[in-house]
Design a protein around this nucleic acid. Structure first.
Length: 424
RNA sequence: GGAGGGAUGGCUGAGUGGUCGAAAGCACCGGUCUUGAAAACCGGCAUGGGUUAGUAGCCCAUCCAGGGUUCGAAUCCCUGUCCCUCCGCCA
C-alpha cells in the first residue's frame, strides 16, 4: 500500500508515477472521496468527543445521586446519531481502503521508464553461450531419456504438471540442496514454512485482493476461513515479520526457504505449453530480506549477487535485466531479472527475479522498527529467487548435453548425486 | 473427536460497568551519585488515525477479531480465530 498521506497530499504526482507502471489513478474520484471522508470523519469525531464528555458527566452525577433523566435523554439522541455517523464513516473508509489496496507500488527513480518487457535494460552479460557442433535437443527430448515424464504428470493432475523419476529426480533434488547450502553460506537463515496460508498473508504481500485468479484456493467443508497455496515462499517468509516492531539491531533479517510454488497461470493459456518452463507447481529457493529503509537498495544489489552466484557456480551463461516501469510487478519499486541461456530455445529465459518492495508490503503488514531516536518507522522488504529449481534443471539439461544425448552433471552438484557424474 | 482453561503495552502481569489508555515489575532512554562502571535513587517511555506548517497542542480509536447489551464496556452476552492442559485418534 502506498502512504495514504502521500496519496492525499500529492495525488497528481503519484498518478504520474503510476502511469509509468501502466496504472491509471482516478485522481478526481480519489479527491472527491477524500473530501467526503475528511468532512464525515471530523463530524463523527466531534460528536464522539461530545458524547464522551457527557457520559463522564453522567457518571459523576450518578455517583453524586443527582437526577440524570434529562441528560440521559440527550445522550440517547446522541447515541443514535453516532451510530449512524460511525457506520457511514466506516463504509467510506472501507471504500477508500479497497481502492488503495488495488494501487501498485510506485517505481523507484532508478527504474527505467518503459511500456513493457521490450523496454527492459539489459545491464550485464555473464558467460558465453556454448557453441555446439552437433544438432542439439531441447529439455523435453533430453528429459524424457532420464525420467522427466510429462504424460504421467498430466494423467495425475492435468496440463502443466510433471513427474520426475530416477536421474532427473536426483538432479532436481541435488539442485535444491546445493542452492540452499549456498544461500545459507551467503548469510540466510534456512526456514521451512506452511505451503497453505490465510488470505491475510497474501494481502500483506500484495497478491490479494487483486490477483486472486492467479492462486489456488483450498476450502474445506468445516472451515470458515479458506487457505491458499503459496505462489512463492515470499509470502510466508515476508509475513514472518508481520505486525512486529523490530529492534534496530535485528536488521537486516535474511531468510531463505525451499518450497513448492503453486500458480494457476490463468491468462497464460498457450504460453510455454511445451516442457517444464511454466508449471502449476514448481520448486524454488526463495530469498527474503527485511532491512532498514536506508539499506534496501544496497541489499537489492547484494541479493542480485547472491542469485548470480548460483548460476556462476553452475557455469550457466546468463544476463541481467533491469525491468522497466511497465514490466514491474505490483509490489515492486525496482526489479532485476536474471535470464539464463537456453540453447533449446536459443533465448535467454527468466530464472530469477529480485525485487525491492520498499515500504509497500511493510505498510500493509505493519512491520516496523525503532530507529536511533526511538521513533517507529516502516522497514523495507525485498525478495528474490535463488533460484527457480525447475527452470535451472531445464538450463542444465540443455547446456550440459553431449553429442550422444548424455548430460554432464555440473561439478558443484556432484557431491549431492551419490557418485553420479553423467546421465546416460 | 471429547472435557476444561486462556488471549491486556517490547516482555511478564494486575484489573468484573464510569474518573482505566490501563497498576506493578522487567527491558529501554535521560539524569543524580561515581575516577569509570555496577548498585541505589529521580524522571521518561503504547500504537494507529484526524486536525495542523508541524516529530507542538488538541481530538478520536484501539485491552485477539466481529457483532450485541448499555447513557457509558478491557470488564456483561453471542460468534469466530488462535494458544494451553487432559483424554481419544494419528505420521
Amino acid at each position: 500500500m502506498l502512504d495514504p498521506k502521500l496519496l492525499r497530499n500529492q495525488p497528481d504526482d503519484v498518478a504520474t508515477l503510476l502511469a509509468h507502471k501502466n496504472y491509471q489513478l482516478d485522481v478526481i474520484d480519489f479527491k472527491n472521496l477524500e473530501k467526503k471522508r475528511k468532512k464525515i470523519q471530523i463530524d463523527t469525531e466531534t460528536l464522539q468527543a461530545e458524547r464522551n464528555a457527557k457520559s463522564k458527566q453522567f457518571g459523576r452525577m450518578k455517583a453524586a445521586q443527582e437526577d440524570t433523566a434529562q441528560l440521559k435523554k440527550t445522550l440517547d439522541v446522541m447515541s443514535q446519531q453516532l451510530k449512524q455517523a460511525e457506520s457511514e464513516l466506516d463504509m467510506l473508509k472501507k471504500i477508500i481502503e479497497n481502492k488503495e489496496l488495488d494501487i501498485p507500488n510506485i517505481p523507484h527513480k532508478s527504474t527505467p521508464i518503459g511500456k513493457n518487457e521490450t523496454d527492459n535494460h539489459i545491464i550485464k552479460h555473464w558467460g558465453t553461450p556454448h557453441a555446439f557442433d552437433f544438432d542439439i535437443q531441447d529439455h523435453v527430448a533430453l528429459g524424457k531419456l532420464y525420467g522427466l515424464d510429462f504424460e504421467a504428470g498430466s494423467k495425475l493432475s492435468g496440463a502443466r504438471f510433471t513427474v520426475m523419476r530416477g536421474g532427473i529426480a536426483t538432479l532436481h533434488r541435488a539442485l535444491t540442496q546445493f542452492m540452499l547450502n549456498l544461500q545459507i553460506k551467503q548469510g540466510y537463515e534456512e526456514c521451512y514454512t506452511p505451503y497453505l496460508v490465510h488470505e491475510n498473508a497474501l494481502k500483506n504481500t500484495g497478491q490479494l485482493p487483486k490477483f486472486e485468479i492467479d492462486l489456488f484456493k483450498i476450502q474445506t467443508n468445516n472451515e470458515t476461513q479458506a487457505h491458499y497455496l503459496i505462489p512463492t515462499a515470499e509470502v510466508p517468509l515476508t509475513n514472518l515479520a508481520a505486525n512486529k516492531i523490530l529492534d534496530l539491531a535485528q536488521l537486516p533479517i535474511k531468510l531463505t526457504a525451499h518450497t513448492p510454488c503453486f500458480r494457476s497461470e490463468a491468462g497464460s493459456y498457450g504460453r510455454d505449453t511445451r516442457g517444464m518452463i511454466r508449471q502449476h507447481q514448481f520448486d524454488k529457493i526463495e530469498l527474503v530480506q527485511i532491512t532498514h529503509p536506508d539499506e534496501s537498495f544496497s541489499a537489492l544489489e547484494e541479493m542480485l549477487c547472491h542469485a548470480e552466484n548460483v548460476l556462476k557456480a553452475l557455469n550457466l551463461p546468463y544476463r541481467v535485466a533491469a525491468l522497466c516501469s511497465g514490466d514491474l510487478g505490483f509490489s515492486a519499486a525496482k526489479t532485476y531479472d536474471l535470464e539464463v541461456w537456453l540453447p533449446g530455445q536459443q533465448k535467454y529465459r527468466e530464472i530469477a527475479s529480485i525485487s525491492n518492495c520498499t515500504d509497500f508490503q511493510s505498510r500493509r503488514m505493519q512491520t516496523r522498527f525503532k530507529n536511533m531516536t526511538g521513533k517507529i518507522e516502516l522497514v523495507h522488504t525485498l525478495n528474490g529467487s535463488g533460484l527457480a529449481v525447475g527452470r535451472t534443471l531445464v538450463a542444465i539439461l540443455e547446456n550440459y548435453q553431449t553429442n550422444e544425448g548424455h548430460i554432464h552433471i555440473p561439478t558443484a552438484l556432484q557431491p549431492y548425486c551419490n557418485g553420479l557424474t553423467i546421465l546416460k
